[in-house]
Amino acid sequence: MSTLEIKDLHVSIDTEQGTKEILKGVSLTIKTGETHAIMGPNGSGKSTLASTVAGHPRYNVTSGTITLDGEDVLAMSVDQRARAGVFLAMQYPVEVPGVSMTNFLRTAKTAIDGEAPSLRHWTKDVKAAMAQLRIDADFTQRNVNEGFSGGEKKRVEILQLELFKPKFAILDETDSGLDVDALKVVSEGVNRAHAEGNMGTLLITHYTRILRYIKPEFVHVFVDGKVVEEGGPELADRLEEEGYDRYVQGAGAATIAAADAAAQA
C-alpha cells in the first residue's frame, strides 16, 4: 500500500508578463487501489498539477509538498520520480528523433526496474500488450511517437503504463482527441493496469465521457487552481448534466463550499 500526498501546493510559471500563479493551494491524497478524477474547465490548472508531480522544469513550486510514502518527491529529479513509481501519461506526447520504440521501452524498463528485463519475456510482454491496445506490431521499429496520430500516441502512453507498472498513474487528458473505439481500448488498458491492484490512478479530464469506462471513487472539481468541490462518482454525473458553468459563474460561492467541505474533512 502506497500513498501519494499533495499538500497545499502552490505552483507558478514564468511568463513574458511576469510570474503567474497557476495552482493556489491544492491538497490531494491518493492511495493504492484508488481512482481519483480531477475535472475542470480549460485553464483551471489540471494539467499543471500533472506536470508538476512529474517534475516538468517549467513549473515552479513556490510552497507546499508532494510526498510518496513519506519521501519528498519535489527533491527528486524527473527520472528519479519515475523510478520511484510516478507515471505521467502525457496530454501531448512528444516525438523523439532517432530512438526506436523497442530501444526506448527496453531502456526505460531497465531504468525503472534497475535491471534489464529478461529478453524473452519482455518481447512477449510487449507484443501482448500492444495487441491488447491494438497497436500495430511495426510500431516497435518506428521512432518514439514519430508520425503517430493523436490516438496512436495515447495508446502508446497506455502501453507504457501497462509495461512499466507504476505505483501511481497520472493520466493527463488521455481521453481528449480519441474517438469512441480508441477511448474504449485505452480505458480497458488503464482498467487492466488498475486491476492488478498495485496502482493508484489520478485521472485528469475535461469531459465526463471517459468516466463511463473508468470508474473513479473520488471526483475533485478544479477551478482556478483550486479544488472547489469534492465528492463521489455522483458528482461526475452532475457535471455531465450541468457542466462547469455554475463553478465558473459563481466561483466565489463554490470556493466557500469547498472551504466548508475542507473544514469538515
Binding site: 522544469p57 527520472d79 519515475a82 505521467l88 502525457m90 530512438v99 526506448f104 526505460a108 531504468a111 525503472i112
Partner: peptide, 10 residues
C-alpha cells in the same frame, strides 16, 4: 523531459 519521465537518466 519525456525520456526522463520514463525513468531514463539524463
Amino acid at each position: 523531459f519525456y525520456l526522463m519521465a520514463r525513468g531514463i537518466p539524463e
